[in-house]
């Protein structure tokens, strides 16, 4: 993959981590192209990539909605039972400066995962269906990628396990069924997120925007 200046610029790929130029070549599914200098993965196409990514965003949507409405933790102590849903948890810091913590917790556990799911679905549905990309699809995909580190569902799951142990001396804590779904979906989200090849999706978005608009059927008057 040596680069000379006569390669068209559109065929070049720059390493985001060390700036080295490479010539982008389509590679087989399951293979990976890495930067020659810093070994950052540049291209790693997967079979059925868009369907996977769509499944990811749907899973995220289910996860967030379910977790908001179903109480997934309950506590028993001295005959009193208390059940909480994610919404209760995220809004538990009620007073003073701790409101800042409430806002960030709500954002990281609920809003950011939800927003990412919606943006990914918007950007990738046309790709999976092989339609023309929607207006603003690139913007949606970029913002979804930038939000990635701030979506903390999987970290919240570990937090639940720690909380369970912490109150062990005080009361009995149970997981509701929603909790197990929460765990399964979080694992799924991690797996698919890791396998998302951004380079392939950007190229596909480029292609999908070149496709002709679907013309509405025109009636011819006679």
């Amino acid at each position: 993959m040596t680069v000379t200046s006569d390669v068209p610029r559109a065929d070049l790929i720059g390493c985001p981590n060390c700036d080295l130029l490479h010539r982008a070549k389509p590679i087989a599914e399951g293979e990976r192209a890495v930067c020659q200098r810093c070994h950052t993965v540049l291209i790693a196409p997967r079979a059925a990539a868009y369907s996977r990514a769509l499944a990811l965003s749907v899973a995220n949507l289910i996860l967030v909605t379910a977790a908001v409405f179903h109480p997934f933790l309950e506590i028993h102590a001295a005959g009193i039972v208390n059940r909480v849903s994610l919404l209760d948890v995220a809004t538990s810091f009620g007073t003073g400066a701790l409101v800042v913590v409430t806002v960030t917790s709500v954002a990281m556990i609920l809003l950011v995962p939800l927003l990412r799911a919606l943006l990914l679905a918007y950007a990738l549905t046309p790709l999976a269906l092989q339609h023309r990309a929607y207006a603003g699809a690139r913007w949606a995909f970029r913002v979804a990628q930038e939000l990635k580190p701030w979506a903390m569902t999987e970290i919240f799951v570990i937090g639940c396990a720690v909380a369970l142990v912490k109150v062990a001396g005080l009361a009995r804590l149970n997981f509701g069924p929603a909790f197990w779904m929460f765990i399964a979906l979080s694992a799924f989200v991690i797996l698919v997120d890791r396998s998302l090849c951004t380079w392939s999706i950007w190229s596909a978005l480029d292609e999908a925007e070149k496709k002709p608009r679907r013309q509405p059927a025109r009636r011819v008057r006679q």
Partner: peptide
């Protein structure tokens, strides 16, 4: 962020009126 979420979970969950309650402290922020 684990510990911040633990504090959030516990504060929401352990509000058993007189029996026990857990409040976040300033270190959470």
């Amino acid at each position: 962020m684990i510990d911040v979420f633990v504090v959030a979970i516990l504060s929401a969950l352990v509000q058993l009126s007189v029996v026990a309650s857990i409040q976040p402290g300033p270190a959470a922020l």
